[in-house]
């Protein structure tokens, strides 16, 4: 069997796919969906209020970009989400580290946190509005609460799954407490921590949308809510797509960190 034969086999298996550059493979399905969508909204008898055509969505997108509204809203939304995410995930990391490392903290704190965790976050919105109003503070706090738990739980889990055998090695070499934390526990727990960060980014984004639709005077969520009121469904679509794209970018950011920091992992890569 020569290399040529193997290469040929690979070609046969991928077929037409091999003629499209690899990075674009993931975009084939979305493209097909957009084409079908265009066809349906052109041919069908569906009103633009129900299903605007992709072209009108693009036109709206262009208009909102030109007048600067869109980027202003994206900026505001991203800023809100980032504040809440940072607040929540840093708190999750710190509290997760302390419950993970200390039995005493775990015993006194974990039960309460688990109780709070079982409350569906969105059911707390009325209370948040009642207590903190509908201002920035209330929104950021809600996002932070959502972002807290994935990081907290996964940090705790990561620490508790540190291999006892490696721990013994660190005892033999007399690691100081600081070395134990920085050179042993955190690197060992990092895969879990990053998973938590990824989940928490997703939740931040979700809570942001809800918070902005509950009441805001700016932001992508507000734009969607406002457009719905005026039956400007194409703007609603622009908003949804923006959420999808920004969400995807932030997720790719964490994936990049995973690639960079966790390349030592010996796992199945497909």
């Amino acid at each position: 069997m020569s290399e040529q034969v193997l290469v040929k086999k690979q070609h046969e298996r991928d077929g037409w796919l091999s003629r499209i550059p690899k990075p674009l493979h993931g975009w084939i399905l979305p493209l097909i969906i957009v084409v079908i969508w265009e066809l349906v909204s052109d041919i069908g008898n569906i009103s633009a209020t129900m299903l605007p055509s992709p072209i009108s969505v693009v036109a709206q997108f262009a208009r909102l970009t030109m007048n600067g509204e869109l980027f202003e809203y994206i900026g505001i939304s991203v800023y809100r989400a980032a504040q809440g995410f940072l607040l929540g995930s840093i708190a999750g990391l710190l509290i997760g580290l302390s419950t993970g490392l200390g039995k005493l903290v775990e015993r006194t704190l974990d039960t309460s946190l688990q109780l709070i965790r079982t409350i569906p976050l969105l059911s707390l919105i009325p209370l948040f509005i009642l207590w903190f109003g509908i201002g920035e503070f209330s929104k950021v706090l809600m996002i932070a609460l959502g972002a807290f738990f994935p990081v907290y739980l996964n940090t705790f889990l990561g620490i508790r799954s540190v291999d006892l055998k490696l721990f013994e090695v660190s005892r033999i070499f007399q690691y100081t407490r600081w070395q134990l934390l920085c050179k042993m526990i955190i690197p060992a727990a990092l895969p879990n921590i990053l998973l938590g960060v990824r989940l928490s980014l997703g939740i931040s984004w979700l809570v942001l949308v809800v918070a902005e639709m509950m009441g805001a005077s700016a932001g992508v969520g507000y734009m969607i809510q406002d457009a719905r009121g005026y039956s400007q469904t194409d703007i609603v679509f622009v908003g949804i797509i923006i959420f999808a794209v920004v969400g995807k970018f932030s997720d790719s950011g964490v994936r990049y960190l995973e690639k960079k920091w966790l390349h030592w992992r010996d796992t199945y890569k497909g």
Partner: peptide
């Protein structure tokens, strides 16, 4: 010094950093 049955290397460190450890 202690050598275990399994190498017990830190998977996130290169060979030289494993040897240096702390």
């Amino acid at each position: 010094g202690f050598i275990f049955q399994e190498p017990r290397l830190f998977p996130w460190l290169t060979v030289e950093k494993n040897i240096a450890a702390n």
